[in-house]
Structures are given as C-alpha cells and as structure tokens.
C-alpha cells in the first residue's frame, strides 16, 4: 500500500515479546501447573526477551483473533489433507499424478514465510520441496492441488497483518 507510514519497529518488537512470553507461559503451565508459576513467569519473560533481541530482520507480531481463525482453518485442512492422502493410499489404482509447481512468495522472510512453508506440507496435496530466493518449489500430488496456495499465502499474510502486493 503506497503512502503508508513506516511502523515503529520497537513497538512491534515489544508486542512480539509479549506474545511470545504468553505462549511460553502457557507451555510452562501445561508442563508444571500453577505451583511454580513465578519461576515460569520469569523464564518466559527472559526467553521472549532473548528472542526479541536476537531475531534478525523485521519482526511480525500475530493477531490473536486471526490466529484462532487461522488455527481453525488449519485443523480443517489437516483433516481434509489426511483423509485425501489416506484414501489415495488405499485405492488399488493409486490415483496420484505428481508434479512440481512454483509459488512466487511475497511474504517476507522470517516467521511469516516459515509458517507458510511449514503449513504447505500439511494441507491437502502439497509439499514444500525447496525454497530458493523468493520461489517455493511445491510438489503437488494431483494436478489441481496447488491451486489453493495463493489463498493460503494471503491467509498467512492476514495473520501477520501483511498486505498482498497488487495483482496477487
């Protein structure tokens, strides 16, 4: 979007740190219960601070409600993907027709791109084969499987508040 003012980076880093600390604290609570909460709080904060300090490049905080929505989409796609490939494994005539397709990435390097590359392998019919510069080589199990990928890329962009470029 042209003319949009640059966001202050320190604020993004603080927000990301808070989100990471919350996630770490939840894991701590799950592992150890509330008995040692204060230890967990200290180390969640320290871990998140170290992350925010050490992560190179831009940091993209996620949006909590959109994360929930993304998670629901992801669970649905996981179920569909698992059923799809299980069915193909059982059918005697083996209905697969593998091909390699390319996906141009506009998501920036860092967490947004990592999330996309990871999720591509778990949604129906696609597998991240190789990431080279701004192109993701995707292995598609059926000819039509890769058509949903631009939408998936937009969905990951929405999670991190990144607008897609014009015409994609």
């Amino acid at each position: 979007m042209p003319g949009k003012p640059a966001k202050p980076r320190a604020r993004e880093r603080m927000l990301w740190m808070l989100q990471t600390a919350t996630a770490l604290l939840i894991v701590w609570l799950a592992l150890d219960g509330t008995g040692t909460l204060w230890v967990g709080a200290i180390f969640a904060a320290l871990g998140a601070a170290a992350g925010a300090w050490l992560v190179p490049g831009e940091i993209y905080p996620w949006r909590p409600l959109r994360l929930l929505l993304f998670f629901l989409y992801f669970v649905r796609d996981s179920v569909l993907g698992g059923m799809d490939v299980a069915w193909r494994a059982f059918v005697p005539r083996l209905p697969i027709q593998p091909s390699l397709v390319e996906l141009k990435l506009w998501l920036p390097p860092g967490l947004p791109r990592t999330v996309l590359v990871a999720v591509v392998s778990l949604v129906p019919g696609t597998l991240s084969a190789e990431l080279a510069d701004d192109t993701l080589h995707v292995h598609a199990l059926t000819p039509g499987a890769a058509t949903s990928l631009p939408a998936l890329q937009r969905r990951v962009g929405r999670l991190f508040s990144i607008d897609p470029p014009e015409g994609s």
Binding site: G82, A89, I96
Partner: peptide
Amino acid sequence: LSRLHALTKTDNL
C-alpha cells in the same frame, strides 16, 4: 516426494 505426502499428512491427522 510422494511418500513424504503420505507420511506428513496422515501423521498430522
């Protein structure tokens, strides 16, 4: 590559 499809997606589900 096709075998990886089977492993990742069914293991996930």
